[in-house]
Design a protein around this nucleic acid. Structure first.
Lengths: 146, 146
DNA sequence: CTGACTGCAAAATCTTTGCAAAGAC
DNA sequence: GTCTTTGCAAAGATTTTGCAGTCAG
């Protein structure tokens, strides 16, 4: 995994190259995602930051705007839950897919070389230029199969 | 593919077994999905039905309610587009996955045995009881790579 | 008849936008 | 100083819900 100082450097470079500014709010959002393993809704992030840093003002709109910015730059990635919105995670780890438990909401990450290769093969077969791919396995996790 | 009379029969049986009623609106929605290849938003379906059957009243809420019902019964399936909602298709074909073009919005279906098998294998490895799975390959279709 | 279904409009979610004030560089 | 960013509240977009009338069985 990347270290936090390196991540921050990468983020600052990205901002600079787009004439964007490094603000406390943006920093806190990146820091939050770095420090917290898992997948979070914009609301999650907003609430937890408000609580953790009562002195810094932050609005939900800023969280949305920053997450969009981060996702475009591949610093975060997201999983979509239909009507229930998206959950974000730091996107700098190795690409991976997700098992999602419909009972407890747990999200398990996995990486499978065979699937990765096969996806590339399929894209090639269809003359499709793959930019991204996602796979979700939906069901019941070990604990919830009672 | 299933024939329309058979589909209808299946649908009616499903309704009966849940003490639900067979209504004109429900029939038209199933018929629409049967007759139209492709992937549609609830809004698409609502607008097209209103236009095709001006004499029958139908509300958007009914479309949503029916699609939910149909999806729960696996008669339809859906692809989620994050904030942009879901698109529905008849779900009685063989399971398949999707290539989605970000430029023109085209959706290409494919089926790959290797991927299907591998998904099952992964679920097993995690002691995960798979109920469904989806795979999306996002990128540019052949036409849009200019 | 009875209970389910419907359309409508209002409510609920989740996300985006306009704007004036504040902040980064 | 200049131009971006922010928080707030309002607006949007999509989906869900409450309800009284309607309809299927």
């Amino acid at each position: 995994m990347i270290t936090y100082p390196l991540l921050l450097e990468k983020f600052k470079a990205l901002l600079k190259s787009n004439q964007l500014k490094f603000t406390k709010q943006r920093e806190l959002i990146v820091k939050f995602l770095y420090e917290n393993e898992g997948h979070f809704t914009p609301e999650d992030i907003y609430m937890q930051l408000k609580q953790a840093y009562p002195t810094i003002n932050i609005g939900i709109a800023t969280v949305y705007r920053t997450l969009t910015l981060l996702e475009e730059s591949k610093i975060t990635s997201s999983i979509s839950f239909g009507t229930q919105g998206k959950k974000y995670e730091l996107g700098l780890k190795k690409h991976h897919d997700h098992l999602i438990c419909t009972e407890c909401g747990e999200i398990i990450e996995f990486y499978d070389e065979t699937i990765e290769k096969q996806q590339q093969l399929i894209a090639t077969q269809f003359n499709f230029q793959m930019r991204d791919h996602t796979m979700k396995i939906i069901g019941l996790c070990e604990k919830c199969q009672s």
